[in-house]
């Protein structure tokens, strides 16, 4: 310790280290400023009366929200979004959590293969498997329907729930379950009375992440939805795609509604999970 605290002359190396630190921070701050600029531009534009060739709009108004609501039938779109997201969250919980329990507690032949099958939908990007999936859904008559959209969205979310839940289940002492079994509880009662209360924090975290991901899931919904089964993010895409038909502010008002919907759930989710979990799929669940 005395060696480290001994005074020494400022060297070229120290200056270099300082410059390096400063340049990293500059890079990060530059990125964050532009990110807020992008979000701020959407927000400002949605309240703008007229905004051409100037830094800020001429005046502010909330009329665009009213017109966007009727132009894009946002009432219907939001209803569809809630139906899809609600169904996906409930179903992926009901299917994923028991499967995670089996994967965490039992060793069986072919378990590695099963695990690989659950990993694949998370590794292959949605647009790659979305096109064959949409083909099959259209041929079986589910294409374009609400059920088709829900089924397609379950493909990444069920494996996601399984992967997030496995470490949570492994943390629970198996002796607790053994004790319940000794007292005569079957698998179903074991789940309801013992595992569910213990797993609630984990399930909540997993399902909130599913919720946030499903609201923002563009590709699968886009490929499988019809005119009556569009979620908000797909409706937003079509609006931006056909830009010029509608006022920019109107599209931005819709974008702000979408942002609000996503961010509310993100804020709630972040109370229960670490931000890194949104990309790393439960790697940190143990921590």
């Amino acid at each position: 310790m005395t060696l480290l605290s001994a005074p020494r002359a400022v060297t070229v190396r120290d200056v270099g280290a300082k410059l390096w630190v400063i340049s990293i921070w500059t890079l990060l701050i530059f990125f964050v400023i532009n990110l807020f600029g992008i979000i701020g531009a959407v927000l400002t534009s949605s309240f703008a009366t007229r905004w051409l060739r100037s830094w800020f709009p001429n005046g502010l108004t909330t009329n665009w929200y009213v017109s966007a609501w009727s132009e894009f039938q946002l009432g219907d779109v939001l209803m569809t979004t809630f139906q899809v997201v609600g169904a996906v969250v409930v179903l992926s919980g009901l299917i994923g959590v028991p499967a995670a329990y089996a994967m965490a507690r039992r060793e069986f032949k072919g378990k590695k293969l099963v695990m690989l099958v659950f990993l694949l939908p998370l590794l292959v990007p949605p647009i790659t498997y979305g096109i064959p999936l949409a083909t099959v859904l259209y041929q079986t008559g589910f294409g374009g329907s609400l059920i088709g959209v829900i089924l397609a969205n379950l493909v990444p979310t069920v494996p996601f729930v399984i992967l997030v839940m496995i470490p949570f289940i492994e943390q629970i002492d198996p002796r607790i379950e053994a004790a319940a079994r000794v007292f005569g509880a079957g698998t179903f009662r074991l789940f309801i009375h013992v595992l569910l209360p213990l797993l609630t924090p984990g399930i909540l975290a997993a399902l909130l992440l599913v919720l946030v991901r499903t609201i923002a899931m563009f590709e699968l919904t886009f490929l499988t939805s019809g005119p009556t089964s569009q979620t908000l993010v797909v409706a937003l895409y079509y609006a931006v795609f056909a830009a010029g038909v509608r006022a920019v502010q109107s599209i931005d008002a819709m974008a702000v509604i979408y942002m609000g919907l996503t961010l509310i759930w993100l804020v709630i989710a972040l109370r229960f999970v670490n931000p890194t979990q949104i990309v790393t799929r439960g790697k940190q669940a143990r921590a």
């Binding site: 923002a216 974008a255 990309v279």
Partner: peptide, 23 residues
């Protein structure tokens, strides 16, 4: 910082695209 950086991922590419067209 991680919370700020998770924003564009959660908002998704469609929203980022609309914002970028403007910004």
């Amino acid at each position: 910082i991680t919370t700020i950086l998770v924003l564009p991922i959660t908002l998704g590419t469609v929203l980022v695209a609309e914002g970028m067209l403007n910004y």
